[in-house]
Design a protein around this nucleic acid. Structure first.
Lengths: 246, 246
DNA sequence: ATTTTCTATTTGTCATACAAATATAAATTA
DNA sequence: TAATTTATATTTGTATGACAAATAGAAAAT
C-alpha cells in the first residue's frame, strides 16, 4: 500500500502540558503571582498521572516561569520575572552558544565594542546624577586592592552593567548583560596581574568623567580603547598558549 | 539558646542534580552528543528515585540541553546547540521581559535601530553571493500576495535574520534574534493591510540592492527609514486605541 | 493573651509496574 | 543466499500508591 500517512507527532505529555501553560503566560491569560491548580487537580484536569504533571512543572521551573511552595497556602505560582532573573537564563544560553560554536574573540569583541559605545553615547545623553553616583560606587569597589581576582571580575561586570543602565534604555541593558558576561573570561584571566588592573581602573576613571561631562566622543574613544586592550591581551594569551603546545 | 545556626539550604534534589549536569556541560566535561548514563544507573549513582532523576532531566530538556530517545541504542544525549535552538529560549525570555516590565516602543525601537544599522554596515562589508541569494529567496517568499498575515510576519522575521547572518558575526546574529522578535507585534498588526505590506517589501528590495552595491550609507538609511516607519505605525495604533477608551 | 499542639493541605520523594519505542539478533520465507 | 519478518532486550514514557516534609491556620493548653 502506498498511502501517504501523516507522520504522527509524539511529543511527551509533560512537554505538551508545559507548552500549554507557557503559552498562557506569554499571552497573558496567566499573570504574575497567579496560582496554578494543585498537582492533584491538574492530574484530573489533564487526565494524566501526577508524575507527568510534576515533570511538566519542572520544565517550567527550569525557565524560572513558576515557583512552588509546600503547605496549605502553598502551591505553584507564576513568577514575576525581573531583568536579573531573566538575564540569568540569557547568560547560560550565551555562554553555551559561545563555547559550543567556537565563536571567535573578534566576533564577540566587535559586537561588544559597537554596543558598549552605543551605551556610552546614550549614557552621555541620559545619565542622571544618580547614575554618576552608582558608577563612582562601582569604581570604588573595583579599586580595592585587597579583593580577589573573582571579586575584581564581579566588580568589573557590575561597573559595565551600571554603565549600561545609565543609558536608560532597558532593552539595551538587557541585551548588554549577555555580552558583558561573554567577554568575562578575558577579564578573569588578566585580573590576576595588578598592572592590568590599574589600566582598567584608569580607563573607568576617565570614562566616568567623560560621561559626567557628556563628552560622547571622549567616552566612546575610551571604551573602544578598553575593549581593544582586552582583545589584544586575550590574543597574546592565546598565542602564548598555542606556542606551549608546539 | 542563641547559637547562630546556618540556615539549611533545601534545594530540591532534582534541581541539584540538574545543576550539577548543567555545570558539567558549561565547563566542558560533558560534550555535545555525549550519552548520559541510563536513568536506572543514575538512580544508583545519585542514590535517588527514578522519578527524581526524570524531573532533573526534564529541567535540562526545557533548556534544550539534552534530548532523549527510547530503545536499546537510545538514552539521553547532550545537545549540540545552534543559534536557532538557543534563540528559542532567548525569545521567550525577551518576550516575557518586554511584557512584564512595560518596556516602551521607543526603547525597543531605538535599540533595534542601532543594532540593525550595525548589521547593515557589516553586511555591506562581509556579504557573500550566497548571502544575497538567501536574501532574494527570503524576499520572494515574503512577496507572495496570497500568504496569511502570520506567514507574512514569519517571512519578515526570516528576512531580518538572513540580513543579520550576512554580517558574518555570529555573536551579533545571536543577539539580533531577540530584538527582531521583540518588535514583531507591530509587524503582526500592520501586515493585515496590503498597503503597509508593499511599503515593507519595497524597503527590503532597496535594502538588498544597497547591500549588493556595498553602499553602507544607503543601506543604513533604508533600515532607519523602516524602523522609524514601524515605530510611527505602532504609536498611531496606540493613540487610536487610547482615544477609544476616553 | 500567649504559646503550644494538632491537623489538614500541598509539594517532594520513593518504589513498583507496565506501556511504547527501537536497535539488534534470530527465525522465516522467497 | 538474500531479503523479510519476527522475536527479544533495552531504555525512556506513564500510571499508581504510599509516605515524608513543610507550613498555614485552627484548636487546645498555659
Amino acid at each position: 500500500m502506498s498511502i501517504e500517512l501523516e507522520p504522527v507527532i509524539r511529543t511527551s505529555l509533560s512537554k505538551q502540558i508545559a507548552d500549554q501553560i507557557e503559552s498562557a503566560i506569554v499571552d497573558g491569560s496567566l499573570k504574575a503571582n497567579d496560582r496554578l491548580p494543585t498537582e492533584e487537580e491538574m492530574t484530573q484536569r489533564f487526565n494524566v498521572s501526577r508524575a507527568t504533571i510534576r515533570e511538566a512543572m519542572k520544565r517550567l521551573a527550569a525557565k524560572k516561569l513558576i515557583r512552588s511552595r509546600r503547605g496549605p497556602a502553598g502551591g505553584t505560582f507564576i513568577n514575576a520575572l525581573n531583568a536579573a532573573e531573566l538575564s540569568d537564563n540569557l547568560i547560560t544560553a550565551t555562554t553555551l552558544f559561545v563555547s559550543m560554536n567556537d565563536i571567535s574573540i573578534e566576533e564577540i569583541s566587535s559586537t561588544r565594542k559597537e554596543m558598549e559605545t552605543l551605551c556610552c553615547r546614550l549614557a552621555c545623553q541620559n545619565r542622571t546624577l544618580e547614575d554618576l553616583e552608582k558608577l563612582e560606587i562601582a569604581l570604588v569597589h573595583q579599586s580595592d586592592v585587597h579583593i580577589s581576582a573573582e571579586a575584581f571580575c564581579a566588580a568589573d561586570v557590575n561597573f559595565h552593567r551600571t554603565l549600561a543602565d545609565a543609558s536608560h534604555n532597558r532593552m539595551l541593558s538587557f541585551v548588554m548583560y549577555c555580552l558583558i558576561e561573554s567577554l568575562q573570561p578575558v577579564a578573569n584571566m588578566l585580573s590576576y596581574h595588578f598592572r592590568e588592573r590599574s589600566v582598567i581602573l584608569n580607563q573607568h576613571r576617565r570614562l566616568i568623567d567623560a560621561v559626567q561631562a557628556r563628552n560622547t566622543n571622549l567616552a566612546t574613544a575610551i571604551m573602544t580603547e578598553q575593549i581593544n586592550y582586552l582583545e589584544r591581551l586575550q590574543q597574546d594569551a592565546q598565542s602564548a598558549h598555542a606556542n606551549r603546545h608546539d
